[in-house]
Amino acid sequence: MEHTLEQSHLQSGSNESFTKINSLIQNIEKVIRGKQTQVKLVITCLLAKGHILMEDNPGTGKTVLARTLAGSITSQSDEKDSVFKRVQFTPDLLPMDLLGTHIFDDVKKEFIFKKGPLFCNVLLADEINRASPKVQSALLECMSENQITMGEKTYLLEKLFFTIATQNPIEMEGTYPLPSAQLDRFFMKIYFGYVDEDTELDIYKNFLKIHHNLEHIHQVLTKEELLKLQDEAEQVFIHEEIIRAVLNIIRNTRSNEGIVLGASTRSGIAFLKCLKAFALVQGRTFVVEDDVKDIASAVLDHRLIYKNKESKITALPLIINQELKRLANLKLY
């Protein structure tokens, strides 16, 4: 009985959507080993209609994850289904390379708009911080408003528009740090880190198979299914006290001594959206405090400017844990 109870509970709400998410996760894990947390966070961002920024040293699997995810949710053959585009950011990249440009049509004797790679469903902006700030800010409007304005005309982007950006640590050479306005538009910034010893050994043993999997990744979610999941994520129940906890965390980042620039209201909204989506990824139709703990630092860390290195490590976990303690001891009746 206990087992069935747990099963029934975990799949409470929509069995269907949970299966879909699970199959997506499994599909990704064929290629990405030992990164379940990061995979879940990426999917959370996808379902929350947000964008994600991944940062770590080269060779830790950022691009592979992005490609695998993109492969799992986009189709290479069907034009009407999700489209995946990849842009490699370089210092000499220009905004028009992303947005598209007007080209003179010799036959019709007029300028026609040639859409750039931004007109897609899943965009992989690889090494985003290698491009100049001019290009980075070109992304701003697309990411927040899902539209592109070129001269007089405004072009709407696809309803499903998900940006996976990767970047190398700022300390590395040849990088332009993202402005905080840009950073704020990414729902999450996640760090990859190296995998543990056993997983790494496993990767070395099976690298051929993994590479094969990457080449032959197949689509598990169609555009419609994904949009439906996004709607479902919005329907996830979030208790008033959890909202209050988010509020307290956001406000505490502003009053904390170790934090120079606190989190914005937009980040609070992003936090709530992510919470809902993450609960769905975890197979729940309601948000619990564990969700707050799991995603808080991914959502907030990159938006904050710390006073010093020490507060960078301690300030945010302290705020989050205080709030979680309050939630855990809360008597809700």
Partner: peptide
Amino acid sequence: FTTFMTLYLKSKYANQKLSKEENLF
């Protein structure tokens, strides 16, 4: 304990009443 915790959290944060089965558990 995990099952209990999930049920507890469910009743705490989801505004959902537990089913008979769950109550018994």
